[in-house]
């Protein structure tokens, strides 16, 4: 028998939502494997693409490399969170559609739906902060302007082995407490407006860590990816794209070795510029 993490009610194991409070069951996805204490890992490097085997044309493109084992945890966590978020948002719209159809929407129902949205939003934001979306701060640093790099070092975005997270709700405010070896390290508060497509993450370190300073991230959900739009009010151009990355297994990759979509070489060096208009 499963129980709702939100209200404790018994759950049908096949249920996507709690029949009592409406919380998305999938929101209780297991956490990503924590990274071990130690030096901050460097940004991943790309292995060379193998030259064409004998007999292959010049346009031959080498098969993709296998995903790194170290990245699987992050990918699994991100996918779990996205599934949870999708279920929450999808459930909301399904409920809204049904309520509109039969005209039986009540104020109580409205409040319940609001709670679901609020929790989905704040939990996503908190988990983003906790490093589930970004486990390698070097990558984030590389995508930010230089004057923010020092700040990123201070943020402690990596979840180390002895770091634990605790969530506590009071009305619309979620408090995320980050423990390091049993002691409070950071307190992150999130006041949600119920908008599942946008979140603001504010970090307020405890007294012992006050020199880290307070930081604020603004996130927006676009399709199936969270975009970091601002850090401390400064706009940044970075998104964490879940559509281009590898899935858990090679065979799930979007790229088909036999397809004609692979890189066709022209005999000249090539610069691939992956960009976005956003």
């Amino acid at each position: 028998m499963a129980f709702c993490r939100h209200c404790g009610a018994n759950l049908n194991e096949a249920a996507g939502f709690c029949p009592s409070c409406g919380a998305a069951v999938a929101a209780a996805a297991p956490p990503a494997p924590a990274m071990p204490p130690g030096p901050v890992p460097a940004a991943p490097s790309m292995p060379p693409v193998a030259p064409p085997p004998p007999g292959y044309p010049a346009g031959y493109a080498a098969p993709p490399r296998s995903p790194k084992a170290g990245g699987k945890g992050a990918i699994i966590a991100v996918v779990s969170l996205l599934v949870a978020a999708a279920l929450g948002v999808g459930g909301y719209f399904l409920w809204q559609s049904q309520a509109d159809d039969d005209g039986r929407s009540t104020k109580k129902d409205d409040e319940k739906t609001g709670e679901v949205d609020v929790e989905a939003q704040a939990r996503a934001a908190a988990e983003f902060y906790a490093g589930w979306y970004i486990e390698d701060p070097e990558i984030l640093k590389g995508a930010l302007s230089e004057d923010l790099e020092d700040s990123i070092d201070d943020l402690g975005l990596v979840r180390w082995g002895d770091q634990e997270l605790e969530y506590e709700w009071e009305d619309d405010v979620l408090t995320l407490t980050v423990y390091w070896e049993g002691d409070v390290e950071l307190v992150v508060t999130l006041e949600s407006d119920g908008d599942p497509d946008e979140a603001t993450v504010e970090m307020v370190p405890e007294a012992d860590y006050e020199d880290w300073g307070e930081r604020t991230f603004t996130l927006e959900l676009e399709g199936d990816r969270w975009i970091i739009t601002e850090v401390d009010g400064d706009p940044v151009s970075l998104f964490i794209d879940q559509t281009l990355g590898w899935t858990d297994e090679d065979e799930d990759s979007d790229w088909d070795e036999d397809s004609e979509d692979g890189l066709i070489l022209s005999g000249m060096p090539v610069l691939l510029d992956f960009y976005t208009d956003w």
């Binding site: 493109a61 590389g142 998104f239 964490i240 794209d241 990355g245 979509d261 992956f274 976005t276």
Partner: peptide
């Protein structure tokens, strides 16, 4: 397709 081939997960990225 090229993003998958080169394991691109962040934008902007230059390969």
């Amino acid at each position: 397709s090229l993003g998958a081939q080169f394991d691109i997960q962040y934008v902007p990225t230059f390969v």
